[in-house]
């Protein structure tokens, strides 16, 4: 329990820190937020009017507390470009991004585990080599280029999948079809790193004595792998998986723009182009918080896996 409490305190501190950084970078460092919103070609008067409207005449700390207080009541301010509450914009686009992220996360972990175990089981043989070379390539490929290549193959040439856009949830099958390529691009890139870590970790654990003990007790290679080696190999994997999921979540920002999917990432991109300060600020905070919370949850998985940690050893 002390471990859990310490981690929770850390989580709150990190989230607060992130809100501070986001606020400082978006509001304080660049100077006049009105200038950021209206651009350099705006008039002095227009900027002054906007400043008053946004409450920018108040001191910085008061504005920060105001913003933070609003967020705690799920009020992210009003979008300057869309003239609607930012919360409304976010809720409208959240389901798509969430679906994309969750699908990609689950498939990434499944694929990486399978590939890592496959390669480790064929250590030094052809299967291992091919997996390692492909994963080395996967790490080097930008997800957006892989997306373009996938579109070229499946949308332009084979014409079996849409090249982009989203038909809405009213047609579930079409909606899923439009997610196939984005998810594939995300998964292939992220699973490459994780598969390598899985393989290394499994090989490390397989050398250990308890894997040999299990074999000496007549367990089949499959049982040794899935019952003894993999659970132990998970421990170092989990940390990397956390980082991969963070990469995956920010990856959706780019991918949504590649496929013109109306999710949070696309919204962020449009908000940046529209100089929609509050929306950008809210989205950056949201994405960063999701990453931090996912990592926190991943840390909690450690507690489930490893009894040694449950006793409060950190």
């Amino acid at each position: 329990m002390p471990f859990l409490l310490r981690r929770l305190a850390g989580l709150v501190a990190t989230l607060t820190g992130i809100s501070l950084v986001v606020f400082a970078v978006m509001n304080v460092l660049p100077g006049d937020p009105a200038l950021t919103i209206l651009g350099l070609d705006s008039t002095e008067d227009a900027r002054a009017a906007l400043s008053a409207q946004l409450g920018l005449d108040q001191p910085v700390w008061a504005r920060y507390l105001d913003w933070l207080g609003g967020i705690l009541q799920s009020d992210f301010g009003t979008s300057y470009a869309y003239r609607v509450p930012v919360t409304e914009l976010i809720l409208e686009r959240l389901p798509l991004t969430l679906t994309l992220g969750l699908l990609a996360s689950i498939l990434t972990i499944a694929l990486a585990t399978a590939l890592g175990v496959f390669a480790a089981a064929r250590h030094g043989k052809a299967g291992d080599w091919v997996t390692m070379i492909l994963s080395q390539l996967g790490i080097a490929i930008p997800a957006f280029w892989l997306s373009i290549l996938l579109v070229l193959l499946f949308a332009v040439t084979l014409r079996v999948l849409p090249s982009g856009g989203f038909p809405g949830w009213a047609e579930p099958l079409e909606a899923l079809k439009s997610l196939v390529l984005p998810v594939t691009a995300l998964v292939l890139v992220q699973a490459s790193v994780l598969a390598r870590v899985t393989r290394a970790s499994v090989l490390e654990v397989a050398k250990l004595d308890y894997a040999r003990t299990a074999r000496a007790l007549g367990l089949s290679p499959r049982r040794v792998m899935w019952g003894h080696v993999l659970p132990n190999a998970l421990v170092p994997m989990v940390t990397v998986a956390g980082m991969q999921l963070a990469g995956l979540i920010t990856g959706t920002i780019v991918i949504e723009n590649v496929f013109f999917l109306p999710g949070l990432g696309r919204l962020m991109f449009q908000a940046i182009n529209n100089r929609d300060l509050y929306t950008v600020q809210a989205l950056v905070l949201l994405f960063a918080s999701i990453v931090v919370i996912v990592n926190f949850l991943v840390d909690m998985i450690y507690l489930l896996i490893d009894p040694r940690l449950r006793e409060g050893r950190s």
Partner: peptide
């Protein structure tokens, strides 16, 4: 495999590392 544990079993050197820490 069918002989191990039933006809012949083995005890190893390092008792900590020879036991699966998660079980």
């Amino acid at each position: 495999r069918s002989y191990r544990a039933r006809k012949v079993a083995m005890v190893f050197q390092e008792p900590l590392s020879a036991l699966n820490p998660l079980k």
